[in-house]
Design a protein around this nucleic acid. Structure first.
Length: 575
RNA sequence: GCUCCCGUAACUCAGCCUGGAUAGAGUGCCAGCCUUCUAAGCUGGAAGCCGCAGGUUCAAAUCCUGCCGGGAGCGCCA
């Protein structure tokens, strides 16, 4: 539809097609038209006031209006175009039915590695991880929808000082307690360790000693304890990832990169790329990136060195056009230091393919949801609450059934993921469990509900068709859309919905370019809103335009379904 | 002190990349709508020096500069 308008304008104006295309806008109100062309920019070259240019253009357009355009109008310096809604609706329904709908080729042929989630063993999987996991998963899906080959990668911190602290604390204060895979117990010991060390400086020396023992692998008892507790943490993530619908093609652990990281650091020192004083470090002050320590003064390895080794592994085994890493804001500098170091190592090309998407912290409104793990809120504690709210909601509305727990969980996950994704990734987000887990308005459950409503209509038609097969040809129209549906005069809410559906691929493209799943989330909400307005204004079953409306419901359902998939939110046929 | 991010309605946020027509949602508040496809819904209303001050432009929430306020980071945590 837009192309028709573009062509029409380009013929009369001294701009080329792409310039016209970029300047076309959608008017703020639908009564003003479907497309608008502002004439301000032409004033200079035409040497005429914009208002007059607009008036002249409209005059020219009127002479030979293509059938897709109903009429043109002038409003100040704008030329407004009104398209034929029936033709538009027909085109949109046809487009949605096509196999490749929602698939773009912006990233065709591109290979990408996405690293995200990165939980630490022996520490809490907290709400910040939920944000990162949701973001990374959604991005991976968007990349794929745009034609990229994507490898989803997790990288977990199973080695390092935090492990030493945990083991130190367990052996010193909690030895009598039975090892448990209960998250809050595991996280609690870490918190206890941090507290203990901050109270007595000598304790850090004890921890350092354990750290050296872990790294050298010489102490059998410590090794066994590490192995066992590590496995417990990892086990607890499996359930979390299942619930969150996160998928990883490959999982790496820090412990795999200790040796290589150490070797690489020593090599850098030998080559004079790294420096040594107390510790071995990269001097990046000239680049405004400070100093980046690779090995401690006792020679043990830091996560910086491990990240270098990991990067080399990525380049070697997962050669990609882009290596994206999705991490918390507070680690931004660290990765800038990594990229600069790779550059200094002579890996300029690879370094330039490294991309960092830092996301903001998740905070809670003051005084709420504090937990024994400090400022962090554990995944399990938090989700228990949300699921309960979802289940109560289902019961309150009479949605019983033996799969109520399953549905409550899906609703809870949708709620949390949606509120994590609907905001721009950079922003520090204030997560108010009470508000964000409310299920009304701009929320995940609202999307699920809208989807379920559409599904319900379609179910009704199908069952009607099954029970009265003889009527197929007359009363109940085809759902496949292959049969032509008659489109009579459209209601406003129908037009609105059609136009919104039409905008889906555009949004996917922008989300892809901007690494911004929030655009898709916002779109899904608008789409659902338009559907609900339509749902209210236009009865489907038994109406005169049943055929068209059914097709429209189907198109909506399909589009929202694709949007939810890109967000990594599981659909629900029934609430 | 330096670097990065944020500042839009009472609250939580879109819009800013790529400047255009009276700045949009949701929540909360007020007033309505369930004998009709799921009321987790729909309709209407009140509510804004778009942090402040300059600059660029025919046109600035949007671009530039400075300031103010909040957050994060800045060598042996990850």
């Amino acid at each position: 539809m837009k192309e028709v308008v573009v062509k029409l304008i380009a013929k009369e104006v001294s701009l080329d097609v792409s310039e016209v295309e970029n300047s076309i806008e959608v008017p703020p109100k639908s009564e003003m038209g479907d497309f608008a062309f502002p004439c301000f920019g032409l004033a200079k070259s035409e040497k005429k006031p914009p208002v007059m240019i607009a008036r002249d253009l409209v005059g020219k357009f009127m002479v030979n209006l293509p059938k897709e355009i109903e009429r043109v109008d002038v409003d100040g310096a704008y030329v407004n175009f009104f398209v034929d809604k029936k033709i538009l609706a027909g085109e949109v329904l046809k487009k949605v039915e096509e196999k490749g709908f929602g698939k773009l080729d912006l990233g065709k042929g591109k290979k990408r590695l996405v690293e995200y989630s990165q939980p630490n063993t022996h520490k809490a999987f907290h709400v910040g991880h939920i944000r990162g996991t949701s973001l990374g998963e959604s991005l991976a899906r968007i990349f794929r929808a745009c034609g990229e080959k994507v490898v989803q990668m997790n990288y977990s911190g199973d080695s390092g000082m935090h492990i030493a602290k945990w083991i130190w604390c367990y052996r010193k204060y909690h030895k009598k307690e039975k090892l448990s895979d209960d998250e809050s117990w595991i996280a609690g010991i870490y918190v206890d360790a941090v507290k203990g060390i901050s109270e007595n400086e000598e304790f850090q020396e004890e921890v350092d000693k354990i750290n050296r023992k872990i790294e050298s692998g010489g102490d059998k008892a410590i090794n066994a304890l590490w192995k066992k507790t590590r496995a417990m943490s990892i086990k607890s993530w499996k359930r979390i990832y299942d619930e969150l619908g996160a998928h990883f093609d490959v999982s790496f652990f820090e412990s795999e990169f200790e040796e290589a990281g150490k070797d690489e650091s020593l090599k850098l020192l030998e080559k004079g790329i790294a420096k040594k004083d107390d510790a071995i470090f990269m001097d990046l002050k000239d680049f405004g990136l400070g100093a980046w320590v690779l090995l401690r003064k006792d020679g043990t390895v830091l996560y910086s060195a491990k990240d270098i080794a990991l990067a080399l592994r990525k380049f070697k085994d997962y050669k990609s056009d882009n290596y994206l890493i999705c991490i918390g804001n507070e680690q931004k500098l660290h990765f800038e230091q990594l990229v600069k170091t790779l550059e200094l190592m002579g890996l300029k090309d690879e370094a330039s393919r490294y991309g960092v998407l830092p996301f903001g912290m998740v905070r809670f409104p003051e005084g709420k949801m504090s937990s024994r793990s400090g400022a962090n809120v554990l995944y399990s504690d938090f989700f228990k609450e949300v699921v309960k709210v979802a289940k109560d909601g289902l019961k309150k509305r009479g949605h019983e059934g033996n799969d109520i727990d399953k549905r409550a969980l899906k609703i809870a996950v949708a709620s949390v993921k949606y509120s994590m994704l609907k905001q721009g990734p950079k922003k520090t987000m204030i997560f108010d469990p009470r508000a964000d887990v409310a299920f009304e308005g701009d929320t995940g459950p609202y999307l699920l509900y809208s989807y379920a409503r559409a599904s319900s209509i379609i179910r009704k038609v199908k069952s009607a068709r099954n029970s009265v097969p003889s009527k197929v040809g007359t009363g109940v129209p085809s759902l496949s859309g292959k049969a032509k549906v008659k489109i009579s005069k459209l209601e406003d809410s129908e037009v609105k919905l059609v136009k919104k559906i039409d905008g889906f691929e555009d949004v996917v493209g922008r989300a892809y370019e901007g690494l911004a799943p929030n655009l898709i989330a916002n779109y899904c909400f608008e789409l659902a809103k338009d559907f609900n307005e339509f749902y209210h204004a236009c009865p489907v079953l038994g109406s005169e335009s049943e055929g068209f409306r059914l097709a429209l419901v189907g198109a909506f359902r399909l589009t929202l379904g694709k949007g939810l998939e890109l967000l990594g939110i599981e659909k629900l046929e029934k609430m």
